[in-house]
Amino acid sequence: MSAITIEKSSKKKSDVVGKLQVFTRKSIAIIVFFILWEVLPQIGVINSQFIPPVSEIVVYLGKMLADGDLLIHVQASFIRALEGFALAVLVGTPLGFLLGGWFKKFEELLDPLLQVLSQINPFTLFPIFMLFFGIGEVAKVAIIFWTSIWSVLFQTINGVKNIDPVILKGAKAMATPKFSLFYKIVLPGAAPLIFAGLKNAVGTSFLMLIAAEMIGASKGLGWLILNAQVNYNIDRLYAAAVVIAALGLGMKKLLTVIENLVITWKEDSSNM
């Protein structure tokens, strides 16, 4: 008994050490990148007029944060991205369940069309979106919705389709009622792929956000970049870019955390 507990505690310790090792290994590239970003402009290898050292940008960010400027833009952008993303999830997942599970024949008919639509470059659709929705909030949210719905939809369809038919057969042989079949079997069965779709969608939604905000916005991070470009404020441009990247990454991380809380049954692959 005691031998087992000792083994367990030592295993825990080595787990922590292992995770730290993985963390440092994964961080090295980023750290080196930041160091180069700081040093190269300082020593003049890179023209600091175009690429200012990272410390300058951090200082600028601090200044923006202090006078409350940054928060307004982040808030505006965040709400837009979230609205578009939430809308994509609200429409994409139920539609995916219906097409993947209950209307398979219809999905077969619809699939080619969906594939074509999803491949349309969203930038080319800007004029059309503007025609329909103007240049206000609706147009921006619509663009984000349009670009992020596809991975949600396709991954949900895949998730439902990929549920092991033997599992479905077993559940049906146990006379599982229709509603139970959905939330006890189909929902958890499709969950891993749905999460993959959500993570992908959140990434695209932040990507498209910037482009969307360049059409007639008066605030937001995308506008900030456009504004910086027009006014030749390089610090501001980089500051906005860094914030956008951090936001997108943060959202993805948040989804991963939620995923790990929901999907507890998957093999731990974090060390692989």
Binding site: V166, I167, K169, G170, A171, G189, W265
Partner: peptide, 11 residues
């Protein structure tokens, strides 16, 4: 019923 491929729920 016990099926050939176990049909257990992995979740």
């Amino acid at each position: 019923i016990v099926l050939q491929g176990y049909a257990l729920f992995p979740w």
